[in-house]
Amino acid sequence: MTINETQDEIIEEFELFDDWADKYEYIIDLGKKLKGLPEEQKTEENIIKGCQSRVWLNAHQEGEKLFFEADSEAIIVKGLVNMLIRVLSGHTPKDISEADLYFIDKIGMSSHLAQTRSNGLASMVKQMKNYAIAYTP
C-alpha cells in the first residue's frame, strides 16, 4: 500500500465516528496497541522533547525501506504516533521525505500538530522526515 492509500484508509475509518469521545477512544486504543520501545531504547538520543510529554523515536533500515518504532508517555500522543508509523513506516526514504501528511487534518487532529500543544508530535513528524533524508542514498 502506498503512503496515500494508507492515509485514505485512515480517513475512511474516522468517517465512522460522529462523536468526539468515540474518536478519542479509538485513538486511545491505538495508543494502547502501539508496541512502544524497550526501556533501553528510550534514550536521550532518541527523545523528541515536547513541553508536555516525551516522545521517543527510533529508525532502522531493511533493504531499501525505512522502519520506525516509537513511544510516548501520553496515550493520545501514542495513538497518533501509531497512525504516523502505520502511514510512513516501511517505505523508501524518498517517499517518506516527500510525503504530504494530509490525513491528520482530515481526521480533525491537526490541533495536535500545532506548536501550542507542545507535545512533540510536530517535532516527531519532522524527525521522521529527517531520518528519511539522512537515509536517502
Binding site: Y24, S53, A74, I75, H112
Partner: peptide, 12 residues
C-alpha cells in the same frame, strides 16, 4: 494517567 491526556480530554 498522563496529565497531557487529561488536558486534551477535558478540553474536548
Amino acid at each position: 494517567i498522563h496529565h497531557q491526556d487529561i488536558g486534551v480530554l477535558l478540553d474536548n
